[in-house]
Simulated scan of single mutants.
Amino acid sequence: MATQHVAPALGLLVHAVERDRDARRSDGLRIGRTSFDILGTMPIAEVDLEVRVLRPGRTIELVEATLAHGGRPVVVLRAWLLEPRATAGIAGTGLAPLPDPEAMEPWDPTTVWPGGFIASIELRRAAVAPGRGAFWARTPLALVDDEPVSPVARAAGLWDVSNGMVVRSDPTAVAFPNVDLTAHLVREPVLEDGWVGFDTTQTFGEDGLGLTSSVLHDAAGPLGTSAQVLTVRPTAATSVG
């Protein structure tokens, strides 16, 4: 069966959580954390979505959403939803903002990665070194046709690309797929012109584990962080040592 990039599926799961929330309550709990476990490859086929509340509450909820194909779970999301409060007077961060997208050079990700989803992304990148750099990404494609989609869900549909845009090693010599993605947010994204920003570091350990960590950005500045654990797999022809 043909497979596709998992990134849009992550956005779809966030959208399902928000749609379920809005059907159950009207107080607008904010998504503070999304933790995705990627259990298999993402098929190009019809999928089933199921949402359930694991920990109900008046001001805090833990919600689980599962995307499955043919009865097999493909991605599971657990999201913490938190009550919004008026904290603008004490808001602040020590995280540095990214330069605007216009300050970075356009970069074609299909020079490294194949696939229609990757080809749909517009990238502007400032690579500092192998495994280190910053970039902005956006796509003109709608996450869901003919249905309003929140900025959180739209941004979540791009988060997974962070593992492939400032690579530490040639992907033809070393495979490094991520098996999860966890993002923490401190506010709703502001997607001016659709851009989502990443200040990303990729680390390979000495025994087959790796980590891609990013500070997430939007038009208003830093908005959270993400992390992906990697299984680092050199090809048989790759010399390691």
Results as ranks from 00 to 15, higher is better:
residue 69 H to A: 15
residue 73 P to A: 06
residue 241 G to M: 05
residue 53 V to M: 04
residue 104 M to I: 08
residue 208 G to W: 03
residue 22 D to W: 05
residue 117 F to C: 07
residue 50 E to H: 13
residue 130 P to E: 10
residue 67 L to D: 00
residue 228 Q to S: 06
residue 44 I to Y: 09
residue 103 A to R: 15
residue 146 D to V: 06
residue 174 V to D: 03
residue 66 T to R: 06
residue 229 V to E: 03
residue 52 R to T: 12
residue 12 L to F: 01
residue 157 G to M: 01
residue 38 I to D: 04
residue 92 G to N: 11
residue 227 A to E: 07
residue 129 A to I: 12
residue 94 G to A: 14
residue 241 G to D: 14
residue 209 L to S: 12
residue 149 V to W: 06
residue 209 L to G: 12
residue 224 G to L: 07
residue 67 L to W: 00
residue 42 M to I: 06
residue 135 F to L: 15
residue 6 V to D: 00
residue 33 R to C: 08
residue 65 A to V: 06
residue 43 P to T: 12
residue 170 D to W: 13
residue 105 E to I: 09
residue 20 D to I: 05
residue 146 D to H: 13
residue 159 W to T: 10
residue 238 T to M: 09
residue 104 M to K: 09
residue 222 P to G: 10
residue 28 G to T: 04
residue 25 R to G: 02
residue 58 R to M: 07
residue 220 A to N: 09
residue 152 V to L: 14
residue 165 M to T: 07
residue 107 W to C: 04
residue 107 W to H: 12
residue 116 G to N: 14
residue 153 A to N: 08
residue 20 D to L: 06
residue 240 V to Q: 04
residue 230 L to G: 01
residue 93 T to Q: 11
residue 59 T to Y: 03
residue 68 A to V: 12
residue 55 R to H: 09
residue 100 D to H: 10
residue 224 G to V: 09
residue 115 G to R: 13
residue 2 A to M: 11
residue 38 I to T: 04
residue 164 G to K: 01
residue 85 R to Q: 13
residue 213 S to C: 05
residue 131 G to S: 10
residue 77 L to E: 01
residue 229 V to Q: 09
residue 165 M to P: 01
residue 180 D to C: 09
residue 15 H to I: 06
residue 98 L to Y: 00
residue 232 V to T: 03
residue 29 L to Q: 01
residue 114 P to A: 11
residue 76 V to K: 11
residue 92 G to S: 12
residue 158 L to G: 02
residue 54 L to C: 06
residue 151 P to W: 05
residue 158 L to Q: 04
residue 212 T to F: 01
residue 174 V to E: 03
residue 53 V to N: 02
residue 105 E to W: 05
residue 89 G to D: 12
residue 178 N to Q: 06
residue 90 I to D: 09
residue 26 S to Y: 01
residue 115 G to P: 13
residue 34 T to S: 11
residue 36 F to D: 00
residue 195 W to Y: 03
residue 192 E to C: 05
residue 228 Q to L: 03
residue 161 V to G: 04
residue 27 D to V: 13
residue 81 L to Y: 06
residue 2 A to Y: 09
residue 9 A to M: 13
residue 226 S to P: 04
residue 210 G to L: 02
residue 71 G to C: 14
residue 188 E to W: 02
residue 163 N to V: 14
residue 119 A to I: 05
residue 57 G to M: 09
residue 16 A to W: 00
residue 200 T to D: 03
residue 230 L to V: 03
residue 200 T to K: 02
residue 158 L to T: 05
residue 232 V to H: 00
residue 213 S to D: 11
residue 172 T to L: 14
residue 237 A to M: 08
residue 11 G to E: 08
residue 55 R to F: 02
residue 157 G to P: 02
residue 96 A to D: 15
residue 123 L to R: 08
residue 192 E to T: 15
residue 58 R to T: 10
residue 165 M to I: 07
residue 47 V to M: 14
residue 177 P to I: 09
residue 200 T to N: 03
residue 160 D to G: 09
residue 15 H to T: 08
residue 44 I to Q: 14
residue 57 G to K: 06
residue 158 L to A: 07
residue 184 H to P: 00
residue 103 A to D: 15
residue 163 N to T: 15
residue 163 N to A: 12
residue 13 L to N: 02
residue 163 N to G: 10
residue 35 S to H: 13
residue 209 L to W: 11
residue 20 D to C: 11
residue 183 A to V: 12
residue 162 S to M: 15
residue 154 R to I: 04
residue 83 E to D: 14
residue 111 T to Q: 15
residue 107 W to N: 03
residue 225 T to A: 05
residue 175 A to Q: 10
